[in-house]
Nucleic acid binder design. Structure first.
Lengths: 227, 227
DNA sequence: TCAAAAGTGTTGTCCGTACACCCATGA
DNA sequence: TCATGGGTGTACGGACAACACTTTTGA
């Protein structure tokens, strides 16, 4: 029993990604206490004793963003003995994709060791605490590998969207431009979109056809999609 | 400080796979104590307090098989609160591929709660302890996804081998037959093999050309290969 | 009528797959 | 000489990439 006091602490850390202001961005929290005072960190927390790992990640996500029912993917577990300065902490890293406009940041919670909480472009990260730079880097690699294979962008779009919006989302994730005709051909061949009769009047130019993800896709995405 | 006695135990479990007797096989240990007396389990052990996760997996692998310097891949972390009957144990699962002929099983170690240790076909598993069936299933899925993309079979072959041996290894992993001409065309196009002047006299028929993985591949595989 | 974004097809290349016969050797 | 496994090439189809012009609307 004594040796239990020697066991490790275990946390979950969640890399929360969004596309916002034409950039892939990650939600970061600025620490208000040592260690790593003023450095930025991805949201995380201890796993409760009778809480599943996935449930812990969902709880952390909800505590920081008030967003529920988002699909989370387990990425990797980090346990270098020196990654935490004071004690041995092993962390199970998760990745979530959310729409930034459906999110009220839990800014009210600043104070309890939290100085600030906000989005940062993944291409221009502030100084990060712990090994969080490495974790974010894993998350982006994972996302890019999966977005090509599996239609994951639906997490980032409203229910109705134009093909151009969808394409821009992919371009932000992959950080490269895509050919419009090829993109449309490919995405329509997947038969996961429903063409709506409505059109978007957002732009002041020619209206664009709206689409939604179809019922079959939405019903089956949990089993077919890792992210 | 009191709450540290409430933290989780953390283990690594290693799915050790080989190709043997024309089958994909996994190394299992038969438990000699409760819980799960007589059930079979994959090798595992607690992570030491100042030991990296990967190092813990290497240690467990070496303790059970006396095999060193094998590339291990972290698969997934399992932490369902009910996966262990008595306490909360979170386990980081790894996967290793080894040649079964370079292995002396640590049979001497039977006794300390270990009744038996041996290879089992993954297609005919005995009753397994804990959630180890799920872990093995993850490992096989992972292996199949990666063997197609990345040349991982070198772990399973001697230094010199024939193309037929290489093909058989892939067939065992994928559990399906491959076309000889297509297989050779593809594998030779990767430019990772060196054709040797020697031939194999193993079979009693026409001798087969021997190949080895070339220096470039062996030098770079750590960075290019996940498994 | 002009500016701006929407929408639309064809071609070449590469990769994977299907498929059948001759060769070298030992028994 | 024959049985056995070793070794080789071609033709088709699908996926991806490159590429430019017309349409619709609001200002």
């Amino acid at each position: 029993m004594y040796q239990e006091t020697k066991t490790h602490e275990v946390t979950v850390d969640v890399v929360i990604l969004t596309v916002r202001n034409k950039k892939l961005q990650v939600l970061l929290i600025q620490r208000g206490q040592e260690p790593f005072m003023d450095k930025w960190a991805i949201p995380g927390g201890f796993i409760r004793l009778s809480e599943d790992l996935d449930a812990a990640a969902e709880r952390v996500l909800e505590e920081k963003t008030h967003v529920k029912n988002v699909h989370l993917s387990q990425l990797h577990t980090f346990g270098n003995p020196t990654r935490y300065p004071k004690s041995r902490v092993i962390t199970v890293a998760y990745c979530a994709l959310i729409r930034s406009d459906e999110l009220e940041l839990a800014s009210a919670e600043t104070g309890m060791g939290i100085k600030d909480i906000k989005w940062h472009s993944v291409y221009n990260l502030p100084p990060l605490a712990y090994d969080h730079k490495e974790i974010i880097s894993h998350a982006i690699t994972y996302l890019r590998e999966n977005v090509e294979q599996k239609p994951v962008a639906f997490q980032l779009l409203p229910k109705k969207f134009t093909l151009t919006q969808l394409q821009k989302t992919y371009e932000m994730i992959l950080n490269k431009e895509l050919d419009k005709r090829n993109f449309r051909k490919k995405i329509l061949s997947y038969i996961i979109l429903t063409e709506l009769t409505e059109v978007s009047k957002e732009g002041s130019k020619r209206p664009a056809r709206l689409y939604s993800f179809n019922k079959f896709f939405l019903d089956n995405r949990q089993s077919k999609t890792n992210l």
